[in-house]
Design a protein around this nucleic acid. Structure first.
Lengths: 342, 342
DNA sequence: AGCATATTTGATAACGTTAACATACTGTGC
DNA sequence: GCACAGTATGTTAACGTTATCAAATATGCT
């Protein structure tokens, strides 16, 4: 009826007045209901319901940490990361923690900007998924005193907790595996040289395996797109036929790229694996359904999220986080399937 | 050197003291640098850098809205929604807004809990991606006065702005399309009856098309899993061969399910489309790469995110949001490909 | 110089909550 | 009826920032 003049916020004071108690009693009723008599509790609860009161979390945590966890990741477009974030979110929810997402930063300047913004929310913790950081970014994070988890990686100079796996080992293991299958003329598909440090690591692992087996490691295809989808795989096969037609196995950086390659082979009537073996990476759900089923590495992305959450919670709760368990290698698994059976 | 006694927070006061100015001057230097003389600005900036000061956004917005947008979605495991959130995040970032993610709620009780939590952060706006809400949820949102956008849907009783498309029309259009291709014995694959209102709508649309063309609409496969991945498609084909072996076209609820079905057909040496036509839904990136390429509906998920952001920002900035433009149907497109060419 | 008007700075009071301490009640045992 | 816990409530002062108004300083113009 009254014109909505100012839509004053409903505060704890309003609840207190309506219930006829002091505002501390209301605060207590909300946070530790047992410390308040049954009678007042009911009174207060009724007032809260009636007024639709919702406590202001920001005001409540003034001067303390908020009940927010900042997640930083390059982008939400990589399936594996999203699975991790999803699991992280689910795990954290039980603790009443919510995710504040920071993604899509490209330049170092943007990184700092984003970091400052996120830290401005006084998060209880930070999870960096597959993010590199500049020196000033490091500095900022370390000085902030906020517990940090780095996920999807095993950085040499960790900022805090680490939950990840060795990309170098993955690269080595996969190439070693297909060498054992009998393949010798192996072409590696990699992404843009600068923008993907993990891909680079896997490539290093690949080189290690090739060298260890005295094989020619010069077959290399570089895809110059930032977003490595199926098109990259298609393109890889086109380049392959032109530049390295004698290849017998194609090592792709992700399952998506591998799938794109497989589909292109099908169009060109190249048989996988007899004409060309193909491997992926990441263990995406479609890999096992493809025909032929795709040989890949299984990374338990959800588990990375779960473990990150656990470690982070531990760090938040303990003042002196247990340094011994801060470095968790979740490993990986080579999953041999039809796309590489000689 | 000194043992970290209390790790006192660095506040605007500390900066002010170091710079030898009042704390209001520091505040102004940060928020409107032009309103401060060059000399003091430099002084203050130096102090900020030196102390690594980061403003407490929570304290700053006390009594106001925070610079946070709450996103509510059933889960991060559906690719389409993630694409929307990704675009949303990118768009909002330009405005200095960050996403607070609320996902994974299933029960109405959890919904309320989540809603209260998120509203407790005093978000500047809320985007609900493909989320149904209870009456009490509605009530809470409406009374909170926070601008709301509902995305991926065209609800009959909108809470605020709407950016979506009609699932019913999608269902109708796809079935109509394949009928026009000459298919008559059409089987529809749907998800669990209760948990997927949009799938239900699409099914309704399908029925509408079948009835309009005097076709037998009794061919129906219900998948009883909550997570509809490729396995669902595999299962659908198995059921199909048992229950409706005379089917000539299979309408799947998502591209993933359709892909699973296609792969299963390949294993069983069923040719697509000559033995069985298959359609998907959603326009996932792999659809065009499959062999045969998949007929699907293209939903511009990223655009939904972009438009939601625009509409939301508009609503946030204007006290009296323009009611005329609050209902945005982004539409969809039928993309005919090889999997249905008779 | 003298006055009016900008421009720049500062003091104080919110904003909504909780921590810490203070007070008022309740009942118990003598 | 009185001291003595113990429980239940209330009071006050933070927390870190910005709005608002007041004061000081600089600038422009005759």
């Amino acid at each position: 009826m009254n014109p909505p003049k100012k839509a004053k916020n409903i505060t704890i004071k309003d609840v207190a007045d309506l219930a006829g108690v002091s505002l501390m009693t209301v605060s207590r009723t909300i946070r530790k209901p047992d410390s308040v008599s049954k009678k007042t509790r009911e009174l207060v609860d009724k007032a809260i319901t009636k007024l639709n009161y919702i406590p202001d979390l920001g005001a409540g945590s003034l001067g303390r940490r908020s009940n927010t966890i900042a997640v930083i990741l390059p982008s939400l477009s990589f399936e594996g990361h999203v699975r991790t974030v999803n699991a992280l979110s689910a795990e954290l929810r039980g603790e009443g923690l919510h995710l504040l997402v920071g993604d899509n930063f490209y330049s170092p300047a943007e990184e700092m900007e984003l970091l400052r913004m996120l830290l401005g929310h006084r998060p209880a913790g930070i999870v960096m998924v597959n993010s590199t950081h500049s020196d000033s970014g490091r500095e900022l994070l370390l000085r902030s005193g906020v517990p940090v988890i780095e996920a999807w990686d095993l950085p040499s100079r960790p900022l805090g907790g680490v939950v990840g796996f060795s990309h170098n080992n993955v690269g080595f293991a996969m190439t070693e595996h297909i060498i054992n299958c009998g393949y010798k003329k192996i072409t590696f598909v990699r992404g843009p040289e600068d923008s993907d440090p993990r891909g680079k690591e896997r490539y290093r692992g690949h080189l290690r395996a090739m060298t260890a087996n005295n094989l020619d490691s010069s077959r290399l295809i570089t895809i110059d797109k930032d977003w490595l989808g199926l098109t990259a795989g298609k393109q890889a096969v086109e380049t392959l036929l032109k530049d390295h037609p004698d290849t017998d196995a194609l090592v792709c950086l992700t399952d998506r790229v591998a799938m794109g390659a497989m589909m292109e082979c099908k169009r060109r009537d190249l048989n996988v694996p007899s004409d060309l073996a193909i491997t992926g990476h990441g263990g995406f759900d479609f890999a096992e359904h493809l025909v032929p089923a795709l040989t890949t590495t299984r990374i338990d992305a959800a588990n990375i999220g779960v473990q990150s959450a656990r470690l982070l919670i531990e760090k938040i709760n303990s003042q002196q986080p247990n340094a011994a368990e801060q470095y968790l290698d979740v490993g990986f698994e080579i999953v041999p399937r039809e796309s590489t059976v000689g």
